[in-house]
Amino acid sequence: MSYFKINVEVRLKKGVHDPQGETIKRALENLGYSGIKSINTGKVFTIKLEAETEEQALQAARIYADRLLANPVIEEFTVEKRT
């Protein structure tokens, strides 16, 4: 057994309105920055866990994301090993 650090990134599905992202975009534009096409917000969870292999650690993180970290109605997620 060894420890793995896995990042789970949760973001809104395409097409789901993201009022936070739009507000941040407007704020940056108010600061004088131009050319920003869009901003999408999300959350990152860094999970340190024990597993036999990297694939097992990733699989566990996928289950956590699916059951709790993301709401599948409006959100999607990706998992990857943190370097």
């Binding site: 809104l12 789901v16 309105h17 993201d18 009022p19 936070q20 507000t23 709401n71 109605v73 409006i74």
Partner: peptide, 17 residues
Amino acid sequence: LLESGLLPGAMRRNAGM
């Protein structure tokens, strides 16, 4: 109720933030 699946759909942040 939405999170538990007893009702369909989900809540997002208010449009006006």
